[in-house]
Nucleic acid binder design. Structure first.
Lengths: 305, 305
DNA sequence: AACTAGGCTCAGGAAAATTGACCCTCACAT
DNA sequence: ATGTGAGGGTCAATTTTCCTGAGCCTAGTT
C-alpha cells in the first residue's frame, strides 16, 4: 500500500487570470467585464491568490485598487504568459478550422452593415464560413477567439468608412419637414448607447434646433426599423443607413452632416497572413462596394449550418 | 434594458493544460500523474478540447496516443506559454515569501537525511523557513512551486553524495552473522520502491548468496526502524543510514559495498541568484558535514511554526 | 445630503472537475 | 492460445469550484 503523497494543490489558473486582468486594467470591475464575470468573482479570485500567497497584491481604496510593489513586479510576466496562451489558442483554433472566420462587431453593425454583405461574400468564397458575434465592446483580440474586430473606433488605421451622422426619417414624414426647426414637432428616436447623437449633430449647426425627446432603443437596428415605420426622426450613421437611403425606405431631410472623429474600423491584432481565410474576408470587406451601389444579386434564402 | 451579449464561453484553461501535458509527455496517464489527477480527468479534458475545436488532437491507439499534425503544430506554443506562466507563479511566490524555501524530496530522504540537518540549518539561518514536501517522483520544477529538488538521480550534476548500498542490521543480529551466506537465515527487509536493492547488491558479489524474502515496506524509514528493532537485514543506502551507523543503532556486517550509477542530487531548474534564501539553503546543504561527523549539538525539541 | 463608483461579503445554486469502477484493445510473455 | 499489463475510454455520482445577486461600505462629487 503506497503512501498517497498529499500533493499541495497549486494555485488555480483562473485566479491568476483574474489577477492579471485586474492588474492590467487597473480595476476589478474592468477585469470582471473582460472576463465576462461579475466583480464579486474577481474579488474572490484575487483574495484567494493573496491568501495562498500570504501577501497582498492590491491596496484597496474606496475608489478602486492599486497594485502593490509585489504585484507590479510580476505583472508583466503574467501578461506575457497569458498573451502567449491566448495566441496559442487562437492559432490552434485557426489551424483546426482554417476556413472559418470569426468576426466580433457591434449588434448594429452586424445587422445593418455586415449582414447585407454576407450573401455576396458567400458567393465570392463559398468555402469560407463566417461566424459573427455581436459584442457591445471591442474584445481584447489577444485573448478572445475572434479573427477580426469591426467597430467604430478613434484609431484611423484600418478605417473602412468615416462615421457621418445626420437626421433621417421615413419619406412620408420628410414631406412635412422644411427646416431643422421643424424637428421639435416630431419625436426624435435615439439609441441608448449613442444617446448624444442628437445633441452632437444639433451643436454642429449654426442655430441648434430644439430636440423633442423620443423613445430610446437598446438596439440601433430597432430604432431604424421604427424610423422606417414613420415613428419619428433618427440620427442616421451613414454606414448603417446607407442601404435604407439607397432603396428609399429612409430619406435625409436636411443637408447638414457631421463627420465624427471615429470611423468604422476593421482590424486584427495579429498579422493576417496571405492566403488565410481571415485575410481574404478582411480584404473583401475593405473592397466591398458602398451600400448605395447596386449589388450583384439579392440575398439567397440559404442559411448556413 | 441593454441586450445581454451572450458571450461564447471560451475554452477552459484546465483543458488546455491537460492537452499540453498529455502532448508533452506522450500519454494521458503520464499527464494525469503530472497534474495530480486520474487519467479519466485528462481524457475528459482533451475530449472537451477536441469537441469545441471540432478536430482531433490525438490519434488513439491501444498502446497510447499520438499527436495529430494539428497538435504537433501548436504544442510548442502551449508549452512555452505554460512554462512562462509557471515561471511567473514561481517568481511571484518567491517575491511574496522571500525567506521561505520549498524543497521537494523523497519521503525517505526527507526523514533520514534532510530532517536531521534541519536544526543546524535553522541555527545557521534563523530567518529562513524551510518547507519540505515529500513526493515519490521529482516534480517538473518549471511548473511546481518548489525551489529545490532532492532526489536520487542519474545525472551526476549537482551531486551531493553517491548512492552506495550494503546490508545493515541491528548490532545484536550482526553478532550472529559471519559471512554473506548467513543472510539466508534471516529475513531481508525491503522497500517497495527499491525492491531490487537486494539482488543488485547480491549480484555484485563473486558468489551471490541466497536472499530470504522478508517483509516489504512502503516507507524506507519504516524499514530502517524495523531493522533497528532487529527484525532482519536491510539494504542500507549510505546517505540514509549513515547516522544510524554513526550512533551504533545499526551496523554493517559485511564489507562489500555497491555504488550505484545514481546519486543524491540537489538541484533547481532555474538559476539560484546569490543572496536568495534558496541559494543559501542549497549551498548550506552541499557544505553540510556527512552524517558520520559529529554534529554541533543534538536536535533541539523546538518545532517550527 | 444624496449620488456614484468601486469593492466587499455571504449564502445559495449552477457548472466544472474529478473520481471510481468497469470495459476494451493490443503487445508480449508464457 | 492464454494470461497479463499498459494505456485509454465510458459513465454515473460526488465533490469542488465558480459565479451570481442582493445588500453593505467608503470616499469623492454634485
Amino acid at each position: 500500500m503506497p503512501v498517497a503523497p498529499p500533493r499541495p494543490k497549486d494555485i488555480p489558473l483562473t485566479a491568476l487570470r483574474a489577477f492579471e486582468a485586474a492588474a492590467r486594467l487597473h480595476g476589478f470591475a474592468a477585469a470582471a467585464q473582460e472576463l465576462g464575470v461579475t466583480p464579486g468573482a474577481v474579488t474572490a479570485h484575487v483574495k484567494q491568490l493573496e491568501v495562498t500567497l500570504g501577501a497582498p497584491l492590491f491596496t484597496r481604496t474606496p475608489r478602486g485598487v492599486r497594485l502593490t510593489a509585489l504585484g507590479q513586479q510580476t505583472l508583466p510576466q503574467f501578461t506575457q504568459a497569458f498573451d502567449a496562451l491566448g495566441q496559442a489558442v487562437n492559432d490552434l483554433r485557426a489551424a483546426a478550422a482554417p476556413r472559418t472566420v470569426h468576426i466580433a462587431t457591434l449588434p448594429a453593425i452586424a445587422q445593418l452593415w455586415l449582414s447585407p454583405r454576407l450573401p455576396a461574400l458567400r458567393a465570392a468564397a463559398p468555402d469560407i464560413t463566417v461566424s459573427i458575434t455581436a459584442l457591445e465592446q471591442p474584445p481584447n483580440l489577444k485573448r478572445s477567439p475572434y479573427d477580426l474586430s469591426l467597430f467604430f473606433h478613434d484609431d484611423p488605421q484600418d478605417r473602412i468608412a468615416p462615421d457621418t451622422i445626420f437626421p433621417v426619417c421615413a419619406p412620408s414624414l420628410a414631406a412635412r419637414l422644411t427646416s431643422p426647426d421643424d424637428i421639435a414637432r416630431f419625436p426624435c428616436l435615439s439609441d441608448a448607447a449613442w444617446s448624444d447623437d442628437w445633441s452632437l449633430w444639433a451643436q454642429s449647426l449654426p442655430a441648434p434646433p430644439a430636440i423633442a425627446q423620443g423613445p430610446t432603443f437598446s438596439l440601433y437596428a430597432l430604432a431604424v426599423e421604427e424610423c422606417v415605420n414613420g415613428a419619428g426622426l433618427l440620427i442616421g450613421h451613414e454606414a448603417l443607413v446607407a442601404r435604407h437611403l439607397a432603396d428609399g425606405r429612409l430619406t435625409a431631410p436636411f443637408a447638414p452632416r457631421l463627420t465624427l472623429q471615429r470611423g468604422l474600423r476593421l482590424w486584427s491584432d495579429r498579422p493576417l497572413r496571405a492566403g488565410t481565410a481571415a485575410r481574404f474576408v478582411a480584404d473583401w470587406l475593405r473592397r466591398t462596394p458602398p451600400d448605395d451601389a447596386p449589388l450583384a444579386s439579392p440575398a439567397p434564402p440559404a442559411t448556413h449550418p
